[in-house]
Design a protein around this nucleic acid. Structure first.
Lengths: 202, 202
DNA sequence: GTGTTTTAATAACGATCATTATGAAAAAGA
DNA sequence: TCTTTTTCATAATGATCGTTATTAAAACAC
């Protein structure tokens, strides 16, 4: 009973995702969101709740649809392949769309007003989740001899993520995909060799 | 002729710098700024102009007083020492103050409303300036044989800055100085060796 | 068809944003 | 001491922020 919804919730969410990607959480106004979604304000509120809830939905979608290369990379056979796949995928994603470069997880809220603190924490936790998955994968690699005994999975995971985050900053500053790939290549040249891996400099 | 200024302009600028460092450009309100500075609104306007001008003054000061380790590091004898000094200094600065972690140049505006675009560009240019200085220094190192013929100063400089930016993101997420130093160590672990440098793995 | 329920659209809400009039207080020149 | 000039503090400016009443339109149940 009752009237049907006239707009596609998924499409509206995609539009909101793009706006947040480009302008961040606090930089995106409802004027921006409604214009991009082609839907009036109350429709956004009835469908998603308030701005924070809408952003969290967009963030979940971002991890599912765009950052899915992280769980996929974890299934690769070697630790080096995992790291390489993450870094090159990040270089591609960060430069894929010219109107919203970088990474939503970084652009969202790095620093902002106190009101945005819950959203900031959500982004921090999301990033920490990805880093934890990578860390576990590198622990396994160490156990399997794919990484040397001296390797520190904590530091390696943090390093890979740091390079990834740094590339996101650079992408937002207009760096080309090629430049980011050169950064990724340099980062991987420091990768420690395991028992059966050909260390191969460069 | 006329009344004297009752507040210390330098101290007020320092206070504003801290607020911007913590909350970024758009996240810092005049309510925040005046409270931190202990000065009323019109005083800030008469002394510095508008918010953008105040931020630019704070940014200049930031580069002079906090990012001075970059020009200093360029004078070190080897390329590796330059990179190491930059990365370890960044790890320290990013975690020096618990109430404004990370880097003002990154926290300022990564993504924001269209009104903040000029400030975003200013931050991008400031970062590009630092990276250009490092690139030139690495070119010199290559010419001096301090870096191998195969080394790419562009990519190396971008890599060092990417790691630095990534550490800033991590610091803002609460990473400890020790963790950031581990990231720096990993980044430096396979710095390309020149003719006279001991490559020394790990 | 009639009544009920849900959505759509217009417009308003109070709060806060950056930016300034406005007028009192204070220091310098005469 | 009186006038001039500058700074100080209070408070108001219009604009925009996120969030909702409110009312009209549409789709089901009966």
């Amino acid at each position: 009973m009752g009237r049907h919804r006239e707009f596609d919730v998924e499409k509206v969410l995609d539009a909101a995702l793009c706006v947040f990607w480009r302008k961040g959480y606090e930089g995106a106004s409802y004027a921006d969101l409604t214009e991009a979604a082609g839907v009036e304000r109350p429709a956004l509120y009835s469908a998603f709740g308030n701005k924070e809830a809408l952003f969290r939905r967009a963030l979940d979608r971002y991890y599912e649809r765009y950052l899915d290369f992280i769980p996929k990379s974890l299934e690769l056979p070697t630790a080096r392949a995992v790291a390489a796949h993450i870094l090159y995928s990040a270089a591609e994603l960060n430069t894929r769309y010219s109107h919203h470069t970088g990474c939503l997880g970084i652009n969202g809220v790095l620093a902002g007003s106190d009101e945005a603190e819950p959203v900031r924490q959500a982004l921090i936790e999301a990033r920490a989740g990805g880093e934890a998955q990578l860390r576990e994968r590198l622990c396994r690699a160490k156990a399997e001899g794919d990484l040397p005994e001296t390797a520190k999975p904590d530091a390696l995971a943090a390093f890979v993520m740091a390079v990834s985050h740094g590339m996101a900053v650079q992408a937002k500053a207009g760096f080309s995909r090629e430049m980011l790939e050169a950064v990724a290549e340099q980062a991987l040249s420091t990768w420690p060799a395991g028992r059966s891996t050909s260390s191969g400099p460069k």
